[in-house]
């Protein structure tokens, strides 16, 4: 019985949160990796693109709520998501048109584009703070739990409870749908294949009659959709705060690199690797060990390997270890 309790505690505090967080990171990392593969630079503005998308979703959610629209047990934000995606798409296309396209025409070196993306980052960051302010915003509604601790205890009779938040469930489901759609698009459709071809060999893609501007446009559209979805899911699960999205940049880059930059599959794997390491290393294991260990060995301290504030350090160390031993990342991306 104690083992079951340990298992439940483990799921409740480690596995489920890590899966949800990993899905959010994976969606973010997919966007970064697509830009890296096709536009050939690391987009420092990605975190702020996520923030912008999430902000739109928050505003539209508020609007819907004020109109009395709701999505039953699900958060209204899910209804707002498509509109937010459209808005973000418009923004990134505008950015590409006004900013990035010029540098493509100049055949600018990738580093120049990185610096340009810093400028875009400033602007988007300012824009988000300008519109919604720098503070925390809550916008999740609907049913809070798929299964709550009390229900679970009543159901199983276990001492330890298990709670699955609606947002966690939604995160995983939406992430799976997004990833499936993306892979179907990249591997099965003509446009998707042309994007892969362009990423693989730009000159040959041109010689095959692939229009680079179209490829770039589709890339931005997909990135906008992924970033907004990731941003909204993260905001629903935790809360919406512009600065937090900026800080997500590090774990997202780490995920993309750990998985192998330029490899979509790697981005997903990297997201989960980073999320699981962060959560397991910063979790206080006392609760789980209490059940799993015999009474005499029961730990007196919290058994927390690192304080939660060091979660950045975790993604960073994982990154270094992976790069030391497997420089191309877990999945063979472009060599780093």
């Amino acid at each position: 019985m104690d083992l079951f309790n340990a298992l439940v505690a483990l799921s409740n505090f480690v596995i489920i949160p890590a899966i949800a967080y990993g899905s959010q990171l994976a969606l973010g990392a997919l966007g970064v990796t697509l830009i890296y593969g096709i536009l050939r630079f690391s987009n420092f503005a990605h975190g702020d693109t996520m923030a912008f998308g999430a902000m739109l979703a928050v505003l539209i959610t508020w609007l819907l709520q004020s109109m009395g629209v709701s999505f039953g047990p699900l958060p209204t934000a899910l209804l707002a998501l498509p509109f937010a995606i459209l808005g973000t798409m418009a923004l990134v296309l505008l950015t590409d048109r006004v900013v990035y396209r010029f540098y493509r025409e100049q055949k600018a070196k990738p580093v120049i584009l990185v610096i340009v993306s810093m400028g875009v980052m400033f602007i988007m960051n300012g824009l988000v703070r300008f519109i919604i302010g720098p503070n925390d915003q809550r916008f999740s509604d609907g049913e809070r739990f798929i299964i709550s601790v009390r229900e679970f205890k009543a159901l199983t009779g276990l001492k330890e409870g298990l709670a699955i938040k609606t947002t966690q469930g939604i995160t995983v489901v939406v992430a799976i749908i997004c990833v499936a759609l993306l892979f179907w698009f990249l591997n099965r459709t003509r446009t998707g294949k042309s994007m892969r071809a362009y990423s693989d060999n730009e000159d040959l893609a041109l010689l095959s009659g692939i229009n680079p501007e179209r490829v770039v446009m589709y890339t931005w559209l997909i990135v906008a959709a992924l970033a907004t979805t990731a941003g909204v899911l993260y905001g629903l699960d935790k809360s919406f705060k512009p600065f937090v999205y900026f800080q997500l940049l590090l774990p997202i880059f780490a995920s993309a690199i750990v998985g192998g930059l330029g490899s979509p599959l790697g981005a997903i794997a990297g997201g989960f690797v980073i999320a699981f390491s962060e959560v397991t290393i910063t979790y206080a294991w006392k609760k789980v060990l209490k059940y799993a260990m015999p009474e005499s060995l029961e730990p007196s301290s919290l058994v927390q390997l690192l304080s939660t504030d060091y979660k950045f350090a975790v993604s960073f160390v994982i990154l270094i270890v992976v790069l030391l031993f497997k420089p191309t990342g877990l999945f063979k991306g472009k060599s780093v």
Partner: peptide
């Protein structure tokens, strides 16, 4: 107050 971030981005670009 948040104009400054926006301005810095614009100047850089």
């Amino acid at each position: 107050a948040h104009m400054r971030l926006l301005t810095m981005g614009v100047i850089l670009l």
